[in-house]
Design a protein around this nucleic acid. Structure first.
Lengths: 205, 205
DNA sequence: TGTTATAAAATTGGCGCCAATTTTGGTGCA
DNA sequence: TGCACCAAAATTGGCGCCAATTTTATAACA
């Protein structure tokens, strides 16, 4: 469909992923020539990608100085997490209402998948398995806009990979919470699901 | 702070407002030369604005064909309204918890303001007075991210000014609902507030 | 008369250039 | 030695150009 669009979109996603992965730490400058080399893209492409990322609040822009990775204000991060929790909890009722037996099985499989990555996989693999689980869970709300919205919100939360997924204990707890969510869905308990989700999100600082 | 940014941001807002106002109807093409004339801006500026609007899902892009005003899929519009309702209702509890007497007075004043615009003001004035009321109400949630998020969501709902604010009856009902919201806040009834908000949002098709 | 092929016009899209601004490094002075 | 000032280098930012594609208009043909 769109050829040009896919090129720049892909570029945006690659940079965003590298920011999440910690290749570019919060506060560091994203120099255009450097990005040109790193991603083998033309200058205008890079500039477009940077503008899009700044619109998404993933990076910030300073006139005549350039773009730098957004440093999460303590309050802002809390607000974003809070907002995520609000929305996802509100979706809990829809999720349990729409979930069939088959959906539960799928969710369980994805939860197991994440759990395995916990042991063997790289941090990036863990991150992605986690994303897939949550995407599947939220899609049960029946509202596709909600799924993409939450994903956008996620991107806006500054990555601190070192602290975020640092302790194995925290990752393991996340995995355990995933199973608790699946269980709550199976039991058709919206309130329990909402509780676990809120805890899951807010603790995943 | 940002000079360049403010220029393009302003341009984006002007075009967005014109789209909301119905100057550009859903489905119509946004030709770059035309926009250049209309907004007295350079080609790259226009292109940047168009890209930003397409990222915001306000307009859509077709490779080598151009940009056109996003035509709301029936389902998509419903999902967006549904999402708005979910989030705002979830915020209802926070709102009543944070609202002081003074806040209620402010809200009442804004509700009255909208009501007056209902009689005397232009459609655009009504639209803006409505926006201000809701912004004030939502800001009581204590979460600034939520306020801007809802505003973004609003922009993504295709305007049909002719049908949206067409009937005076509907506008009057909106105004009445505003007062009901203020009353619910005053009575510290989160559930009532949530109910009115949901109704208000979903009926404002 | 309706349809297809072709050419001209219009529109979009990518790229490089150069000016404006900021940062950096060095020099002179108290 | 520390500080202020100045010049050079680096970086960003806006603009116009031209190629690629699509659309429209025209003409030829069944």
């Amino acid at each position: 469909m769109d050829d040009h669009n896919s090129a720049s979109t892909e570029l945006v996603e690659r940079i965003a992923k590298d920011i999440q992965a910690g290749t570019f730490t919060p506060g560091s400058w994203l120099k255009q020539v450097e990005l040109q080399r790193k991603y083998q893209a033309s200058r205008p492409m890079i500039r477009l990608a940077l503008d899009r990322l700044s619109q998404k609040r993933i990076i910030q822009h300073a006139q005549n100085r350039g773009y730098y990775v957004h440093e999460g204000d303590g309050d802002e991060v809390m607000e974003l997490l809070d907002l995520r929790a609000m929305i996802e909890c509100a979706a809990a009722h829809r999720i349990v209402a729409n979930a069939t037996e088959k959906h539960c099985d799928t969710l369980y499989a994805l939860a197991r998948d994440f759990d395995e990555k916990t042991e063997t996989g790289s941090i990036l693999e863990q991150y992605e398995a986690n994303l897939i689980f949550h995407r599947e869970l939220l899609s049960l709300s029946g509202n596709l806009q909600l799924v993409t919205l939450i994903e956008d919100l996620r991107h806006r939360i500054p990555s601190a990979p070192a602290s975020q997924w640092q302790t194995r204990a925290r990752v393991k707890q996340s995995s355990a919470e995933h199973f608790q969510m699946v269980e709550a869905v199976s039991r058709r308990s919206a309130n329990d699901l909402a509780d676990v989700m809120r805890k899951h999100i807010l603790q995943t600082k």
